[in-house]
Amino acid sequence: MTSSPVVWQAIEAFVVLNALLVLVAYVTLLERKFAARMQSRIGPYYVGRPHGWLQPIADALKLMLKEDVVPTASDRGVYNLAPIVFLVPCLLIFATIPFAPELGVADLNIGVLFFLAVSSLEIVGLFMGGWGSNNKYALLSAMRAVNQIISYGLPFIFVALVPVLLAGSLQMSAIVAAQQGLWFVAYPGLGQLAFVLFLVAALAAENRVPFDILEAESELVAGFRVEYSGMKFALIQLGEYAHMLGTSFLGALLFLGGWSGPWPAWFGPIAFLLKAVGIFLLVTWVRWSFVRIRVDQILAISWKLLLPASLVLLLATGFVVALRGAGGA
């Protein structure tokens, strides 16, 4: 740690965190606009005419000024801690994501593992909220969430390991470096399959439609966050979108080559951001096009299709790597 002092790293983390919050706020606007266009609507319009540019800021202000209601029957400590426990892992995953060569908070040599491990902690905050609210909808939602995350955690990890195997490293920057010639999504056969599986597993891990049974508004009102209001609601929402964005960044890193591509170096970080937002939009597109599927269907997809497929894919990747050697195509 002599080359990069702790103070410098703290400043870097502060900058990344704040940029991230702004990005997350505007990603919500992007999603609302995108969804509106898909449904022949205009979307947010009045606040910050003509495109609703100030809508996220107005939303944030509104949520901060709202009354914070705590249900009397709730398990107070757990209820109050839950949004924070939920948010922290969602923000922590960005610690290992490098935005350009040498530009990131910490380029750990176990970067991908760190990402997967930390994002698996999100579930703790989720069931704390579901349990602490003392509300049967919230509890049912938390049960479904646990169910779903047990099922989709494994395929997500296995698929994320395919690029790791191809690059021969868990370090994010090394994985990008291995894709200088050819992005892993273009790797014949393996790449495309892995990318599709990754998207499906990511959709489920982010609890998005068609896998959003845990917040299913028609049956569970809003799921585990039904009793939350004001800033606590905002924290949960923030965590959810940060997680989604983080997963998009991970996808862009693992499969779309991060910042690498046929452009000058300065454009790299911008390209990386565009790729991540592209994946986010792809996921949003799916969200606004499909209907929610049933619990048993979700579990069947995971255990009968995704898990075996990702295992076979991992095995096949292992063979390919053993035959050709690691380190890019």
Binding site: L113, A117, S120
Partner: peptide, 10 residues
């Protein structure tokens, strides 16, 4: 990482 993934998460 493994501790978090298997124990705290799993």
């Amino acid at each position: 990482g493994v501790q978090l993934l298997l124990y705290a998460g799993g």
